[in-house]
Design a protein around this nucleic acid. Sequence first.
DNA 1: AGACTGTATGCTGTAGGCAGTTGACGAAAA
DNA 2: TTTTCGTCAACTGCCTACAGCATACAGTCT
Lengths: 246, 246
Amino acid sequence: MSRSDLAGKAAAPKIARPVPLRESVFDALLELIISGHLRPGQHLAESELAEMLGVSRQPIREALQLLSGEGWVDLHPGHGAFVHAPTAEEADQLLGVRALLETEAARLAARNHTDEGVARLRALCSRGLAAVDADDIDGAVAINSELHATVMELSGNTVLIDLAAQVSRRVRWYHTPVARQRGRASWEEHTALIDAIARGEADLAAEIMKNHTEHTRHLYLSQLGEEEPVQPLPSRRRKRRAPASL
Amino acid sequence: MSRSDLAGKAAAPKIARPVPLRESVFDALLELIISGHLRPGQHLAESELAEMLGVSRQPIREALQLLSGEGWVDLHPGHGAFVHAPTAEEADQLLGVRALLETEAARLAARNHTDEGVARLRALCSRGLAAVDADDIDGAVAINSELHATVMELSGNTVLIDLAAQVSRRVRWYHTPVARQRGRASWEEHTALIDAIARGEADLAAEIMKNHTEHTRHLYLSQLGEEEPVQPLPSRRRKRRAPASL
DNA sequence: AGACTGTATGCTGTAGGCAGTTGACGAAAA
DNA sequence: TTTTCGTCAACTGCCTACAGCATACAGTCT
C-alpha cells in the first residue's frame, strides 16, 4: 500500500542498485518546487508529503534536510519545513557568486590546461554552435551548461567545483521562467575563452569568463524583478475545519 | 534511560527553546571529529554512536546528514557514514576558495560601506592589536575570525556569507594542528584594509584582502603537508565479535 | 466589546523495531 | 595452497508508534 506514486521510480530497480528512497523523494519534491506545485513560503507538512508520495515520514524528513542544505527549503526547528521564497536580490547575489567562482575556475583551468581538456571544450563548443545554428535552444542550453561544468572540472579544484555546483543548482530556480540564451555571441565568447585556456593565459581567460558571466547575469536580472513572491512566515495551517473565507 | 550523555546539553533547557536533539548530536560528533577521537576514514556505525551518545539512531542519522552537507563525513548509501579524510591538497583548495570569497567580500564591503560598519571593524581591530600586544594568542585568533566574519557580513551578500561560513568551518579542521597567527603584521594589514573599505576603494580593499589571505594560506601550507592521514575505504567492521572498545 | 485563558488538535521530534542487503568468515573443492 | 561458494552476523534503510509542544478556537472575565 505504500510507495504508490514513487514505486515506479524507486522500487522498480530495487536490485539494480540501492538507490535510497530519500533521493527519489528529493527529486520528486524538487520537481514539485521548481514546477511551482509547492509554492514559495508554503508550509510542508511531513505527513502530507508522506501520504502524497506514498512513503513514510522518515525519507521525507531526510529529503527535506537535503533540500534545506541546497537552499530549496527553510527548516525552522519545531515548526517544520517551508519552501524557500526566492527574491530578485538573492538571484543577483547567486549569479554574482557564480560569476566569481567560474571566473576563478577559468583562471585555474588555463593554468592546468591539458590537450585532452581543451579538446573536450572545443568539441562542446562546436556542438553548441551547431545547436544554435539549428535553432535548437534546449540543446544549446544543455551544452552550455556542460561546457561551463567542464571548465569547472578542468580547474581541478574539488572544493570550487562543489561550491559552484551548489550555486548553479540554486540558480535553476530562476532558470525556468527566464529566457534562455543569447545566441551566437555567447558561443563566440566561449571560443575566445577556450583559446585563452589553451594558451595558458590565465588572466585573459579569467577576464573573458568574467565578462561572459556578468553579461549573462545582467541579462537575467533585466528579465527578472517583475514578479516577486513574498511570504514572510505564513500560518502553518491554511484552515482548521471550517470552510471560512481566509 | 536515554539521553544519558547529552542530557545536560539538550534536555536541560528543554522549555527554553526547542533545540532539536539532532543539533546537539551534530555538535557532539563534530567535536569528536575535530578532536580526533573519530579518526579520518573511520566507519561510523549509527547504532554505536546512538549508544555512545545515549540517543536513538534517528537524531544520529540526521546529524550525519548535516555533517555530510558540510563535508565532515562522507555518506555512502547502503554503506553508512565515514569520517572524511582531509588532505593537504584539499586544505590548499579550501584556503584558495576562502581567499577568493573573502576578497570579493572586501570589494563589496568597500562598495556598500557604512559608518556603523567601519566603526565596528575599527573596534575589532583595536581589540585585536591589544590582544596581540598582551600576548593573548587565543583572543587574537578569535577576534581575527570575528573581524573577517564582519567584513563578510558587511558585504551584504547572503549567498557569499553562507558559502564563506561553510568553507571557514571546514578550514577549522586544519586549524587545530597548525600554528595560529602571524602577529602584528597581520593586524596592520587589517588596518589598511579597513581604511580602504572606509574610503570606498573597492579594488584596493580587494587587493589588500587578497594579499592578506594568500599570505595566511601560504603560512598554513608551509606548516601543513607533513602528516597525511589516508584511508581510502577501510573495512566496515574492525572485527567481528570482539568486545570492542569504542 | 475586547482581552485573556483553557482546551483541543495537528504537528514535529524521537524511539523502537523489522526486513533486506552487504560483506566477512569458514569450509569445501581444485 | 589457492580459489570458490555457502553461511551468517551486523548494518542500513524504512516503517510505525508515542510523547511533547505549538497554534488556533471557544468560552469566560473585565
